[in-house]
Design a protein around this nucleic acid. Structure first.
Lengths: 358, 358
DNA sequence: CTGAAAGCGCTTACAG
DNA sequence: CTGAAAGCGCTTACAG
């Protein structure tokens, strides 16, 4: 049975009402030119009146246009498997949206080699990607790159950490200050105001400073706000190897007897755990960051008490979905999406990453 | 330009190779009968050989079939806004999949009236829903209902709590025993083995017992496993009103001086917080469940120290998506999806629910 | 500036 | 048991 005219929907109905062809409606819908202002106005009115919502399935099926997204993140290394989770999240998103004519390409760089970051950025620009998802691990290089993106009007989404004052499409990641603040609270929850606290920044890269400093400031802010009397000793370990950590910690423990807790501002907390284990120091409260294998190992052994995490998988998933929302759905959204700050212990870590099937 | 024959893809290519029409291919693809065994075998082989993946967009666009999902959850009440979050998650999923020809209907029942649950179940069966998402709050009624669903071959997904030994399509929710176990750990993290602990079950419904008992058992298991010497006093408050809680707590505090902490096995922890505030008892460690307004209020005021949560929004989202995966994508999956067990404090609760935009 | 027509990869009656 | 044809709601050349 053929539908009656007044049962038409979508572009057909708009075309009928405006007395034009659906091709013209399509032109207006996508803001292409070649339509007289008069016609355009008429069609625009009808679109509003009908509160027309395009059928994305039909649109994507008919269109040959392929959107190309580039993903620029660190490769998983022997040192750390942190980036496994974001990658998995990104791939989960990729699977969900690939039917919509989206091609996702991966450009992985080496966290120990800032040139590899630059090399990949050049590849991306050459590739002609429509949108970019990146982790700005090398902040200066990243800022230079996003400047280029802006020049070329290529939207980009940041995950893991933010570049201040950059007009990204979105930042998906933690509120670092608040994360450090939470860390201090968790320490105090157990210490109840007593004992000296060691704060450790372990990083050979100056780039991390922006990242670590925000966490440290949050940490200190908590103790200040609550007028806690704990001494805080801050140590910058400018090498990410075990020996450097061992040396600094040995010195610290020799000088100061009252150390009751250690807070590590990034995922290198396992190095400290290793030290505590080897030197048989028990009853030191140890809190650090990130769900990585080496950390989980010490969490299980009760050497690390708490790991703070920022949903790395979710960051990757959401990051790519933001590009999808922007390009395919034409949605707008807040340009910051803060991740929850999660608390992992020996008792709940198992459930943290295994629910990600949808 | 017309494509060459050997560039054909999808059903067309299968049909060409099998020397049949695409209608026949379609029949085989969907297991409809009316195809000779010989032809079917031939087509099946080709499907495998080509590793054919149907184009869901085209499929859903062409099909007139509408899938109807029924959602059976408690309505948000004045007493608690707990069910806001699952509802929001379900609606988020609904928005994501509605284009695929899915109609979602809501059947909300009253947690104070088990008959309302029954009434809604009858409505659902009458409606002829294809799949059901439900919270089995009244466990006996729910079991009777899912028995009927099984008889009629209507798949259903459970959220929030499980019905033991039911063959649901999936359970999406917490591992309650482990959740209680974590609760005990958090207590001990602050108490360090000292002080008497009060465990409170506040519920007038016998139905909740299965739920609460699992949590309590987990809690006790932790203390036993770690040989903690804390006394545990367990109180069942069989009314969900403030006065009953006040009476029981007053009595408990009069009898026992050493109470240092209270663990409430469900979201009624705000009633205890209210009591502690009114009776000016400070320094009592208070841990309970769920991100609801009244609890957050006391979390902010430092009366409640920790809330344990099981991603209610995610449960709703994933629950509906499981039905989608089953019906539209024809995917298979584990029939249990345990939620992470999250720890909320005054410092991180703000980030817990605001990232849900995708 | 505009329209007629083919096509995206499927599903659905209908006819035989 | 099987196939030809129309159609889902869009987009895309192409022609004028």
């Amino acid at each position: 049975m053929k539908k009656k005219n007044n049962e038409l929907t979508g572009v057909r109905e708009i075309a009928r009402r405006a007395n034009v062809s659906i091709a013209t409606v399509d032109r207006v819908l996508h803001g292409r030119d070649g339509v007289s202002p008069k016609t355009k106005a008429r069609i625009d009115d009808i679109i509003k009146e009908l509160n027309y919502q395009p059928n994305i399935l039909a649109s994507r099926l008919a269109s040959k246009k392929v959107y190309r997204f580039a993903v620029l993140i660190p490769k998983v290394s022997n040192e750390t498997d942190f980036w496994k989770a974001p990658l998995a999240g990104i791939q989960r998103a990729e699977a969900a949206i690939s039917e919509y004519g989206i091609k996702t390409s991966y450009y992985l760089f080496d966290l120990n080699d800032r040139r590899s970051f630059d090399i990949q950025t050049r590849q991306i620009l050459k590739s002609g990607a429509d949108g970019i998802l990146l982790a700005p691990s090398f902040i200066n290089e990243a800022a230079a790159f996003t400047d280029l993106c802006k020049e070329r009007h290529i939207p980009y989404v940041l995950i893991d950490s933010n570049i201040p004052n950059q007009e990204s499409l979105c930042y998906v990641g933690p509120h670092l200050f608040r994360s450090g603040y939470l860390g201090a609270h968790l320490m105090n929850f157990s210490l109840n105001g007593k004992g000296t606290i060691l704060v450790l920044n372990i990083s050979k890269e100056v780039d991390d400073h922006n990242y670590l400093i925000q966490i440290e400031e949050g940490f200190r802010a908590y103790n200040k706000y609550h007028s806690l009397q704990n001494d805080i000793i801050k140590i910058d370990v400018t090498s990410a190897g075990y020996t450097a950590v061992e040396k600094e910690l040995t010195a610290a423990f020799n000088e100061e007897e009252e150390i009751k807790a250690i807070f590590v501002t990034n995922s290198r907390v396992f190095l400290v755990a290793q030290y505590l284990e080897r030197s048989r120091k028990r009853d030191i409260l140890l809190i650090g960051y990130d769900f990585i294998e080496k950390n989980i190992e010490y969490l299980k052994k009760d050497v690390i008490d708490i790991l703070i995490c920022h949903r790395p998988g979710e960051q990757g998933y959401q990051g790519l979905m933001k590009l999808y929302q922007h390009f395919i759905l034409g949605k707008t959204f807040e340009n910051i999406s803060f991740m929850p700050i999660d608390i992992l212990t020996k008792e709940n870590y198992e459930f943290y990453n295994n629910y990600m099937s949808v």
